[in-house]
Amino acid sequence: MFSSLILAPFADESARHSLAAVIALAISAGPVGVFLMLRRMSLVGDAMSHAILPGVAIGFLVAGLNVFAMTLGGLAAGLLIALLAGVVTRTTELKEDASLAVFLLVSLALGVVIVTVNGMDIEHLMEFLFGETSANMNQDKLLVIAANATVSTLVLALIYRPLVLDCVDPGFLRTVSGSGGIAHFAFLALLVLNLISGFHALGTLLGVGIMIIPAAISRFWTRDITAMIAIACVTGALSGIAGLLLSFHAKIPTGPGVTLVAGVLYIASILFGSVGGLVWRLFPGRHLEA
């Protein structure tokens, strides 16, 4: 029973690659998701995942289904948009969400045009949008995801201090250091990097799920940022593993599989979370002395 449910799906080598990929992705995307949430940018992350589409499509046109070409294309498109939006935000009155939204919409429109004009067939398009079945992870994709996760984790460690300060007290950071702007751009670059990993592992539409949902879950269990990051990584990895199993047994793509498991964990956290969970609100207990 245990072996047929849990172990048998991973008998195949590419399924084991998928497993390694989602765990790496959960560990690198979890902290990025936490910062997105704390900066109230969760939807920006979501929108950004569509913005890398034209880059990926151009990579696809140039080199076919080549993982590295699609990665480079997506990276270039994402970084360009992050940079343009960042410059507009920091030099004009427009706030981040508005300036990003404009670039994202234009980019998504461009992506759809490129994909349609060049007649991508429906099978590839579905794979493109929703991720492949777990049996299709290849070594190149795993390599890209692992490299992205390594870079992302290291860079996040480097910019962690200014990033936290830029979230909690940006005015103070400006008076002691000029690193806020650099940290912000570096963070957006990490966002793009993780979106590309998510795209390879889970498809463009749902790749962002493993970044944003675990972060939202973590908020229901702790009030400390370090613990939040740890919880986001662990719940992300759990959703990844359980989601792969679900997609194997139910014969559905990995993207929705992983995202649905994360969604179930999220609903459980809303109900039972130790910080503001709804069930505890119903039974708050008597008030304390002081």
Binding site: L38, V168, D169, G171, F172, T175, R223, I225
Partner: peptide, 18 residues
């Protein structure tokens, strides 16, 4: 940057988990 400054309304996100 050698000058310490306390703004009138500090631009602090009080919901930040710190």
């Amino acid at each position: 940057r050698d000058i310490a400054y306390l703004p009138q309304v500090a631009d602090i996100d009080r919901s930040f988990p710190i």
